[in-house]
């Protein structure tokens, strides 16, 4: 079910401001691809263009092609809502729905889309998704309690469960651990390891060790200065990026000598 993503000549704008310039990359299926780079270089912007969340911001637009499974995401006939059902997303800050219980949060993607589910089928989806997110054992006795009552790390795993409950083919994660403590972070990294057998995962991270630990491939973005567009500098297997990168800029950033 996982799909690879082909990006060609992608320019991403906020109004007139070109935030990311001419990205070309291929994100392989059933593997984890990490996006690294300094703040403001357009990692989030690029990630959000992969499921057409970018255009939720007024004035934001995209030039170029993104092809998932032979379909071009930005073709005129394509419904962004359908794209988002296929390409799920987990955000930097955990954002469970505050009016819903844990159970309802997991089912939100289905329920909000008015899917009629039998009780038994719904229970199954909830259990499978929470197990998939390594959260089942911690919450199985309090599924009716509010999702906001969980710890930050549990909330983030709840958000992952919510994202995989709609069975997307690609999972985008924007710094999913940056608001979490080391133990929760390691729980989520384990989870990413397990998920990659079924999903194509793209993860933005500021943590080099994390990129090295979880990803197969790494893409390094950089920015020439404020107001300049971000660019993809290099994309290579993670092992290579962290040992013998092609570009001196990548080497400088990874070894902390970045200016």
């Amino acid at each position: 079910m996982a799909k690879s993503i082909d990006v060609s000549d992608l320019d991403i704008y906020y109004g007139d401001f070109l935030a990311v310039e001419s990205v070309n990359m291929t994100i392989p299926a059933r593997s984890v691809t990490a996006l690294i780079g300094p703040s403001g270089c357009g990692k989030s912007t690029f990630l959000r263009s992969l499921n057409r969340m970018h255009e939720a911001i007024p004035g934001a637009r995209v030039d170029g092609k993104i092809i998932v499974d032979g379909q071009s995401l930005y073709d005129p006939g394509v419904d962004p809502v359908e794209v988002r059902r296929m390409v799920g997303m987990v955000f930097q800050r955990p954002n469970p729905f505050p009016t819903m219980s844990i159970y309802e949060n997991v089912l939100a993607g289905l329920r909000l889309n008015n899917k009629k589910l039998k009780k038994s089928a719904a229970d199954q989806v909830v259990e499978k998704s929470l197990k998939g997110a390594n959260l089942w054992n911690e919450v199985k006795d309090r599924l009716g309690k509010p999702g906001m009552g969980l710890s930050g790390g549990q909330q983030q795993r709840l958000c992952i469960a919510r994202a995989i409950a709609v069975e997307p083919q690609v999972l985008l994660m924007d710094e999913p651990c940056s608001a979490l403590d080391p133990i929760s972070t390691s729980a989520i990294e384990d989870l990413i390891h397990e998920l990659k057998s079924e999903y194509t995962i793209v993860i933005v991270t500021h943590n080099m060790q994390q990129a090295a630990r979880v990803s197969e491939d790494t893409a390094f973005f950089n920015i020439a200065g404020t107001g300049k567009p971000g660019k993809l500098i290099e994309m290579n297997p993670t092992k290579k990026i962290f040992s013998v990168p092609d570009e001196p800029a990548t080497e400088a950033y990874i070894s902390g000598r970045f200016g």
Binding site: M53, P98, A108, N113, N114
Partner: peptide, 17 residues
């Protein structure tokens, strides 16, 4: 918070819903 709207969009929920 806009976070919640985005969380919902990201699940493939249309705007009006």
């Amino acid at each position: 918070p806009d976070d919640l709207r985005e969380a919902s969009y990201a699940l493939g929920v249309p705007k009006w819903r």
